[in-house]
Design a protein around this nucleic acid. Structure first.
Lengths: 348, 348
DNA sequence: CTAGGCTGTGTTATCGATAACACAGCAAGC
DNA sequence: GCTTGCTGTGTTATCGATAACACAGCCTAG
């Protein structure tokens, strides 16, 4: 059977006995078309199986109706939550989210940003504040609002909705110290590919130094983002080398879970022999026994706030691009330390 | 500062001293443009900060260059893997993936499919084989290849790359039976919103019946997809009601992990007192102690295979829409039972 | 009774690219 | 030397919608 050509607005117009322009209006809300005409047109459209071509609509109206977002990985509960928050925040405006993942790779991020920009998004959200120089240029020249998230970039491109990963690392270090731990280590990946993870390590180690605690118990295991497997093997290496370690921060909850399992299999009591903390407030850290102390980065709030920033920027085009230095463009999200059994001897 | 109008192909053409058509060719691979002209044009484009407008390109060429995919949730390692497989499989063709999530809601899926179709994707991939009637109609009338995944639909729309969730349930039931368990229960969500989860339960219970085992130990806890929390509370309810239960299948590994934690806190030995199995081969089930027996649905392979099916369909337009009954359009993915310590007394 | 305004619809001119066709210039074959 | 064919480039006509403007018809205020 031959498939008939897909109907266009002109076909619907003919069927309903009006002009194409009236069809265009009738299919959109808040346009002046009489109720009766609108109903007739909608009925004709449905009958013909008409589906609007938003490629043509976008070209003509110069509005694409979507926001592009790059995240390092789709399989990450935190970034997924941010995407969800962004979707929800954009919903009232009718804008959709176009999502891409970069695999924690700057070159891939550059490629992805470029293909996104070809589709003329109305705003771009990127994860992190570190990008290739060309990627920065592309974003800056795009003419649309750009939001960097999950970070506090040294040199913001435009808007920022994030938090300091270094501060989160410090937060954990101070907590472990306050719990009386002194021989403290860190488990993370073996490169700075995950720049946010590297920032947490940096902040953590800096805090140890400030507290006068040796900062040499550092195990790097595998390419970031490390997960359960690497957390487990890193824990074995940590204990092999420094058997008297009293506490360890893992770069994420997933690696902390691996570390917890490994510690158990090594016959160590948690938190009796060793305290373990993670990052990211993943579900899993709530259900292990003991629960894992972590930092909630408020992923969902980051997404919601980003949506707010975007909608504000789009509704005030006159204020666009006030220059990267405008402090109003940087929104700080408050992270929250969640203390659980893995770092505290008496239940609190 | 005033932002200059974004440059168009005509601007680049002028700068390079050629016609717009030559610019169009020069920016695409495998087109006949002399090396020297191409280099000059590319240089001019880069200098002007030109970014191709693929909205216009798509309208003109009637090819959008992307495949749309709906998944129930972004925050799910399995669907994420399928999306990754699809992305990889499509990469050689230069096509991108446009991803949307439906929150396990058919009405939301319908809405999403409609907005996707407006953007004229070159193919659509949906998760599952159950859709609203209007969604089926939209997809069938779209004129592009449609792939249903993660399921074996009773009434396929077009192509299928999936497996039988009921068979996976049966697989677990037979395994538990073979391990000598007789008092066997099931933990899942309280509705059929997650139709694939409901299919697994159906297959599992059917197998119990076939094996002559009572099939009444059924705990439904929370709206699907249930996760760790619901798995834990369901386990407590299961044991409260049927303290002598010897084995349980959970609808997914996440709920199985919750169930495992709860069983432990109840003082039960796993697998000594009770065997626990899950579904989905999530990382976590490999790192718990004991590891959790599960079924690997080969999520990544589903994505890769879907890409293959799509590219084949697009390269043979003459064979398009041979009718939903063509058995060549249904590709079965072999799931694999992974037996771990949670269901087997002696290590295997 | 008429100017002015509002509502609903049509007309015209794009939006920014690409397909299809045309053709100039040159090389190779006979 | 002339046809044939290939390579590289230009011209023309869309692709399917929407913005901007125009205007008819009717209502209302003074």
């Amino acid at each position: 059977m031959t498939v008939p050509r897909k109907p266009t607005m002109a076909d619907v117009a003919r069927a309903a006995g009006v002009s194409p322009m009236t069809v265009s209006r009738a299919l959109r809300p808040e346009t002046s078309v009489s109720a009766e005409t609108r109903a007739r047109i909608r009925e004709a459209a449905e009958r013909l199986g008409y589906v609007l071509d938003s490629t043509a609509a976008g070209l003509s109206s110069r509005r694409s109706g979507f926001v592009a977002m790059t995240i390092p990985s789709i399989n990450n509960a935190n970034f997924a939550e941010t995407a969800r928050g962004l979707t929800e925040g954009l919903r009232p405006s009718g804008m959709e989210l176009l999502l891409g993942y970069t695999d924690y790779d700057e070159a891939e991020e550059e490629r992805m940003v470029e293909t996104f920009l070809r589709r003329r998004p109305e705003a771009v959200v990127v994860t992190g504040g570190v990008h290739t120089e060309r990627c920065r240029t592309l974003l800056a020249a795009s003419g649309v609002p750009v939001v960097e998230t999950w970070d506090r970039p040294a040199r913001p491109i435009d808007k920022v909705v994030g938090f300091s990963n270094a501060a989160a690392g410090r937060q954990i270090a101070h907590h472990l110290y306050a719990e009386g731990r002194r021989r403290i280590g860190f488990i993370g990946g073996d490169s700075s590919r995950d720049t946010r993870g590297a920032d947490r390590r940096r902040g953590f180690l800096q805090a140890l130094e400030d507290l006068g605690v040796p900062r040499d118990r550092l195990v790097a295991d595998g390419a970031p983002p490390i997960t359960m497997r690497e957390g487990a093997s890193a824990m074995r290496r940590l204990i092999e080398r420094w058997p008297d370690t009293e506490a360890v921060m893992c770069v994420s909850d997933l690696s902390a879970f691996g570390a917890l399992s490994a510690a158990r299999r090594l016959g160590l009591s948690v938190p009796g022999d060793i305290a373990i903390a993670g990052f990211g407030a993943y579900d899993i850290s709530e259900f292990t026994d003991p629960g894992i102390t972590t930092v909630d980065a408020r992923a969902h709030a980051i997404g919601l706030k980003s949506a707010e920033v975007i909608l504000a920027a789009l509704s005030h085009p006159e204020a666009a691009r006030r220059g990267a230095a405008d402090p109003n463009d940087v929104i700080e999200i408050e992270t929250a330390l969640i203390v659980r059994g893995s770092t505290r001897l008496q239940p609190g």
